[in-house]
Write a protein that binds this DNA or RNA. Sequence first.
DNA 1: CACTTATCGATACTATAATATCGATAGAGA
DNA 2: TCTCTATCGATATTATAGTATCGATAAGTG
Lengths: 219, 219
Amino acid sequence: MREGDKPTVISKQALQRMPYYIRFLRGLKERGMKVIAAPAVAAQLGLNEVQVRKDLAAMSNSHGKPKSGFIIVELIENMEDALGYNNSDDAILVGVGSLGRALLGYGGFAECGLNMVAAFDADPALTGGNISGKPVFPMSKLKDICCRMNIHIGVITVPVAAAQAVCDELVEAGVLAIWNFAPTHLTVPPDILVQSENMAASLALLSNHLRQRLREENL
Amino acid sequence: MREGDKPTVISKQALQRMPYYIRFLRGLKERGMKVIAAPAVAAQLGLNEVQVRKDLAAMSNSHGKPKSGFIIVELIENMEDALGYNNSDDAILVGVGSLGRALLGYGGFAECGLNMVAAFDADPALTGGNISGKPVFPMSKLKDICCRMNIHIGVITVPVAAAQAVCDELVEAGVLAIWNFAPTHLTVPPDILVQSENMAASLALLSNHLRQRLREENL
DNA sequence: CACTTATCGATACTATAATATCGATAGAGA
DNA sequence: TCTCTATCGATATTATAGTATCGATAAGTG
């Protein structure tokens, strides 16, 4: 860690709040504001005031000033830097089913520093063409292309049955972080990160809440 | 709480693990197995043994037996019950852009007890027809349809700028739980649950991990 | 029928994250 | 200039979740 750098330990939860902060702060900047105080951010985003202050302090190089707050542009810069919104990461996607297509077509990743450069699929009928401007290759090309293009992020949008095999191939191809949309656990070496986007898990929370609410009413 | 019922307090995290358990246990059941021990589950899903035992114990009515484990079918039933996989919840979706379409076309929700019955959009050009067999109505019909069909779950797949307004309409229409795919905070009354599916938040974890890994290598 | 052992439940401990509290300080207003 | 107060940073407390440990018990084995 270089002298003057912030400690590199930012909690998982805090990291996940960053995109919300960034979005909000960008809005303020556009409206010409220069500084913002933690309580104001907290109120807007429905968070605790102290939590926000800590998060902002962790990202800001300078100190927040009592009565006025933190410098907006600095916060934005530091957060974007921490999340790599500036120097875009290239990624490839495996599995061009309906979800895969949707992700390929989604334009919002660019502003988060993610750049989908290509897709892969095991079905020969789906390869060879383009989807949303991204070329679709057969699985046999995976390793070669990943290595040559120095790809470090892989997105898995294949059925559960194929997920682990695809995962292994990605790791073999040098991918360091995997974004997994298949609703299953993936086993990887300890230095590889798997971030699972399990819709069913979120749904579980919704359903359970609903069940409790309805039970209360009927009681 | 009725006599004999399990305590209704299941931690958020545990709830989110349920779908993984269910999926794994169903597989065992199909292969004819009757009982399963916590350590075996833990190994398969990459979880801690004690954690799994606690989770299973929380869901099972009977006790797990030393040396053999828990009764599979009972676990499945209890979990499905807790998450409402059996008595399906009806839901409506607002915003039929690319993500909305993808979700409407995704068949996997049925087995999680979610039943998308209709979609809505503000753009008149998109309403009137069907998408993946689901009718698309104009926003003006929202409240009427939700009330008549007794809808309690709303899915938001509109741009950020429209999200809060749509959210308010949903609450007004009697929705109790909201599944939010717009990358923004939604303000709701305290008894309404918002589950946000923020891709940017997940990406934040991936990017950060990657940045650290690459820094380590280059050091 | 003893002996061994995998697994259980319960309890204790640890880690992580969220929140409350308090003295210090910058800026607004008398 | 002096006072008042919103906000800050730091520290302490609490809440939640995860992990380790240990005696008890059921099933297999000699």
